[in-house]
Amino acid sequence: MSHVQILDVEKSFQGRQVLKRINLQVEKGEFVTLLGPSGCGKTTLLRIIAGLERSDGGKVFVGGKEIIEGLKKKAQNIGMVFQSYALFPNLTAYENIAFGLKINKISPPQIRQQVEEIMAILSIAGKEKNYPHQMSGGQQQRVALARALVTKPDLLLLDEPLSAVDAKVRESARSLIRDIQQKMGITTIFVTHDQLEALVMSDRIVILDSGEIMQQGKPEEIYNKPANRFVANFIGSYNFLPGSLLGLPNKNVEVCIRPEHIKLVKLDSLAQEEDASAHQLQGTLTNLYILGNTIRAEVSVQGKTLLVDRLNGFQASNFVLQEEVRLLLKKDALNTLGITS
C-alpha cells in the first residue's frame, strides 16, 4: 500500500470548487512535487493532507491511518514547512527546533543532542541563541526546515519553502533539501509554482490546474511528453502547431515541439539536409537574440511565430533578419496534443 493515499478528495470555498476529486498515491521515500499556477489549489491540498483543513469529500490516509481535521496531531508525526516559515517569534532558534521534541516528552539530553545534530546538518550551528528576527531569510528557512525534520517525521510537507529567498540561496537550498530527503528517506510532498524547481528536485511531478490533476510523471516525462496544451504551456516555451501545417494525415490535430528540437538551416542547404526523420517548413527569420548559453530565433511560418533554440556558438552571423529559412522539426520530438475544435 502506498504511504500516502489521497482518495477522491474534494473541497469548495464559498460554493467554488477548489479541488475536484483528487486521487494521488505517494510511495514511501518518494519526493513528489505539486506544481501548478497560483490559486490552483496546491496549498489547499497540502493542508488537507496535513489535517489542517477539512475536505468536503474523500479520504486521506498516511501510513494506513486516516487523517482527520482537528484531531490531535501528536501521533501522526508529520513535519511541515510553511511558506512564511511560521517560526515562533518569542523563541530562539534552538527553542523553535526543540518545540516538537518537548511536546513528545523526549528527555532534555536527547533533545539537546538531536537539535544540535540537525543544526549541524543544516549548517546553522552557532545560531542557537538567535531569535527569528535576528536571522537572515535563508537562516530562518533552515530553522523552519530543522524544526520540521528534527522529529524524524514519516511525511514531510513543504509549501513553497523557497519562494521567499533570493536566487543563490534558493539554488543551494534545493540540493540541500533533496540530499537530506534522500539520506533520511522521508516521504516528501513539495509545493511550488516554479517548474525548474520541480524538474530539478522531484522523483515525480504532479501538475495541477484549477483543482484538477492535469498530468503526473517523472520530470523527463513531463518535460518531453506533455499530455496536453496546459502542461506544455506551463512547463515552458513549447511551440504549438496545427497538424495541417505539417501536412499530417489528421489535419485537426494539434502538435507541440520544444524550441531545441527544431533545426534552423539556410534555404539553399535543402539538398544535403533531405531527411525523412524530420518535417520541413519554410519561413521568415524575424528575430534573433541571446538567452545565456542558447540563441533563440523567431521564425514566422504562414503567420505563426515559432521559437527555435540553438546552442550559443552556432553561426548566427550566417543569417540576416527577414531572410527566408528552412526549419527541420524532428518527428520523434513532436507531441500530439489532441483534436482541436
Binding site: K73, K74, L91, F99, G100
Partner: peptide, 22 residues
C-alpha cells in the same frame, strides 16, 4: 498569525500549550 498556531498544531501542541509557550 494563523500560521504559527498551525505550526504548533502540526507538531502536536494543544491549544493551551501553544498559548502558554508562544
Amino acid at each position: 498569525k494563523q500560521d504559527i498556531i498551525e505550526a504548533a498544531q502540526i507538531m502536536g501542541a494543544s491549544r493551551a500549550y501553544f498559548w502558554r509557550r508562544v
